[in-house]
Simulated scan of single mutants.
Amino acid sequence: MSLASPEISLAPGFQLARGVSRHLTQRGMSCLTEFVPTRGLRVDVLALAPDGEIWIVECKSCRADYQSDGKWAGYRDWCDRFLWAVDCDFPVSLLPEDTGLIVADYYGAEVVREAPLHKLNAARRKSLTLKIGRTAAQRLSRLLDPDFTGWPA
């Protein structure tokens, strides 16, 4: 059973996020897509490693998608490692070399360039980890009880 609508599942960004999530899950990480770490930012994939390390993966489907989005620099303040996910035809020379790189498709992904580590401070890690847990629990609850009207916005 698929919960994604056909229109969403065909979108290039969704396809990349799906492949990235599959790959990172196989590496022992837990992933959330479309996660909002703070007002004004929405990351494509956030992954929480077993050791508590937090990765953000920004999916870019083409040159125009990359060039039209300047928010990504703010994502570094909300993760230990920042990576891009692109398909095999993306012009990777556009991407900053001091970031990680994943090549992905609908079915999987591969880390091509490891992301440098920039450790979050303890207070931000704690608040972000709590928000990740609450977001995941609320999403699961909404799936289990979609008719309930009392969910927070």
Rank of each mutant, 00 (worst) to 15 (best):
Leu101Lys: 07
Arg125Val: 08
Cys59Ser: 13
Ala17His: 04
Val86Met: 02
Gln138Ala: 06
Arg18Tyr: 03
Asp77Asn: 09
Ser127Gly: 01
Asp87Pro: 09
Asp51Gln: 08
Val57Met: 03
Ser2Gly: 01
Gly133Phe: 05
Ala123Val: 07
Tyr75Arg: 06
Lys131Phe: 09
Asp98Phe: 02
Pro91Leu: 12
Trp55Asn: 02
Tyr75His: 12
Gly150Met: 02
Arg139Ser: 12
Gly150Lys: 06
Ile54Arg: 13
Thr99Ser: 12
Cys59Thr: 07
His118Trp: 05
Arg124Thr: 11
Glu53Tyr: 01
Leu101Phe: 05
Ala122Lys: 14
Pro37Leu: 03
Leu41Asn: 00
Asn121Gly: 04
Phe148Cys: 08
Gly100Pro: 03
Gln15Ala: 09
Asp98Pro: 00
Leu101Asn: 05
Glu53Gln: 15
Asn121Val: 11
Asp77Ala: 15
Ala64Ser: 15
Tyr107Asp: 13
Gly28Asn: 09
Pro116Ile: 08
Pro96Asp: 04
Ala11Ile: 00
Leu117Lys: 07
Val43Lys: 02
Gly52Asp: 07
Asp145Thr: 06
Gly150Phe: 06
Ser5Pro: 02
Gly108Val: 00
His118Asp: 07
Ile8Ser: 14
Leu143Cys: 13
Ala64Gly: 02
Arg139Gln: 14
Asp69Lys: 06
Ser9Cys: 04
Tyr106Pro: 00
Thr99Phe: 03
Gly19Thr: 08
Ala109Leu: 07
Leu144Glu: 14
Arg18Met: 10
His118Leu: 08
Ala73Trp: 01
Leu83Gln: 04
Asp69Ser: 11
Glu97Ser: 13
Thr135Met: 07
Ser9Trp: 02
Arg81Thr: 06
Leu95Glu: 01
Trp151Ile: 01
Leu95His: 05
Val43Tyr: 03
Glu53Thr: 15
Ile56Asp: 01
Ile102Cys: 05
Leu101Arg: 08
Ala109Cys: 06
Leu32Ala: 11
Gln26Lys: 12
Gly74Asn: 15
Leu120Lys: 05
Asn121Glu: 13
Arg63Ser: 11
Ala64Met: 03
Leu48Cys: 10
Leu117Gln: 09
Arg113Ile: 09
Glu58Gln: 15
Ala123His: 08
Pro96Asn: 09
Phe148Ser: 11
Glu7His: 12
Trp78Gln: 14
